[in-house]
Simulated assay, not measured.
Amino acid sequence: MIKNEKIKASEVHVTGLNGEDLGIMSTKEALTLAKQLKVDLICTSLMSSPPPCRLIGSGQAKQEALQEKQQTRKREQAPKIKELRLTPQIEDHDLETKRQQAQRILQAGDAVLLVVKISGKEGAKAKELLEDLLKELSPYGRKQTGIQLSGKQAAVQVNPV
């Protein structure tokens, strides 16, 4: 972010404090205007000619830069996968608690791996339990793959919408 006297262009396209378009003017005029209003002249992009600049209060410019940096860092991070374990004999209240946990995780932007531990012939019951949970969580996330039954567990990953 280039500001004030560090802007080397001869002309700039200036946007005012409230977003109003002040048009194209020489850099000296824009700096004079910024000093009169006791604000900073910030160059938002060097790729166009004349470069677009904004008049921003000095503290606000630093805050915007910090927020932008945090947003890009947040976007770069891959969503975490959080695992929730269940059993086919789960009580209704416990199932509701797990559903709420999954909903909170999905709303926070992370993926949920729902795992049902099975033994013996509980595979069908586990699959039915996961299908019901997927229907309830459909406004918050979509399943990545189908329900996978393997040996001692049934699992499905739900990614946030």
Score class of each variant (00 low, 15 high):
Met1Thr: 15
Ile2Gln: 13
Lys3Trp: 05
Asn4Arg: 06
Glu5His: 07
Lys6Gly: 11
Lys6His: 08
Lys6Ile: 03
Lys8Ala: 13
Ala9Pro: 10
Glu11Leu: 07
Glu11Val: 14
Val12Arg: 05
Thr15Gln: 07
Gly16Ser: 05
Leu17Glu: 08
Gly19Met: 03
Glu20Leu: 11
Leu22Ile: 08
Gly23Tyr: 06
Met25Asn: 03
Ser26Cys: 04
Lys28Asp: 10
Glu29Ser: 13
Ala30Glu: 04
Leu31Arg: 15
Thr32Phe: 04
Thr32Asn: 12
Leu33Ile: 14
Ala34His: 01
Lys35Glu: 13
Lys35Asn: 14
Gln36Tyr: 00
Gln36Thr: 11
Gln36Val: 05
Lys38Pro: 00
Ile42Leu: 11
Ile42Phe: 08
Ile42Thr: 02
Ser45Met: 05
Met47Asp: 14
Ser49His: 09
Ser49Pro: 00
Ser49Cys: 04
Pro51Asn: 03
Pro51Glu: 04
Pro52Ala: 06
Pro52Trp: 01
Arg54Tyr: 06
Gly57Met: 07
Ser58Asp: 07
Ser58Met: 02
Gln60Met: 14
Ala61Pro: 04
Gln63Thr: 13
Gln63Tyr: 07
Gln63Val: 10
Ala65Met: 10
Ala65Phe: 04
Leu66Thr: 13
Gln67Trp: 09
Gln67His: 12
Gln67Pro: 00
Glu68Leu: 11
Lys69Asp: 09
Gln70Pro: 00
Gln70Phe: 03
Thr72Gln: 13
Thr72Pro: 00
Arg73Met: 07
Arg73Tyr: 00
Lys74Ile: 03
Glu76Thr: 02
Gln77Gly: 00
Lys80Asn: 09
Ile81Thr: 15
Ile81His: 01
Lys82Arg: 14
Leu84Val: 12
Arg85Lys: 11
Arg85Thr: 12
Thr87Met: 05
Thr87Ile: 11
Pro88Tyr: 04
Ile90Gly: 03
Glu91Val: 08
Glu91Tyr: 05
Glu91Gly: 15
His93Thr: 14
His93Gln: 14
His93Trp: 05
Lys98Asp: 02
Lys98Arg: 14
Lys98Gln: 14
Arg99Phe: 08
Gln100Ile: 10
Gln101Ala: 13
Ala102Phe: 05
Ala102Tyr: 06
Gln103Trp: 01
Gln103Asp: 06
Ile105Lys: 12
Ile105Ser: 04
Leu106Arg: 10
Gln107Ser: 06
Gln107Trp: 01
Val112Gln: 02
Leu113Tyr: 02
Val115Ser: 11
Val115Pro: 04
Val116Pro: 01
Lys117Gln: 12
Lys121Pro: 09
Glu122Trp: 05
Gly123Thr: 15
Gly123Val: 12
Ala124Ile: 10
Lys125Leu: 10
Ala126Ile: 07
Lys127His: 09
Glu128Asn: 12
Glu128Asp: 11
Glu128Gln: 15
Glu131Lys: 15
Leu133Lys: 03
Leu134Trp: 01
Lys135Asn: 09
Glu136Pro: 00
Glu136Gln: 14
Leu137Gly: 01
Leu137Asn: 03
Leu137Ser: 04
Pro139Phe: 07
Pro139Ile: 09
Tyr140His: 13
Lys143Gly: 09
Gln144Phe: 06
Gly146Tyr: 09
Gly146Phe: 05
Gln148Asn: 13
Gln148His: 12
Gln148Met: 09
Gln148Val: 15
Leu149Ala: 13
Ser150Pro: 00
Gly151Asp: 11
Gly151Gln: 13
Lys152Arg: 08
Lys152Ser: 10
Ala154Leu: 06
Ala155Arg: 14
Ala155Met: 10
Val156Lys: 06
Val156Leu: 05
Gln157Ala: 07
Gln157Cys: 08
Gln157Leu: 13
Val158Arg: 01
Val161Met: 11
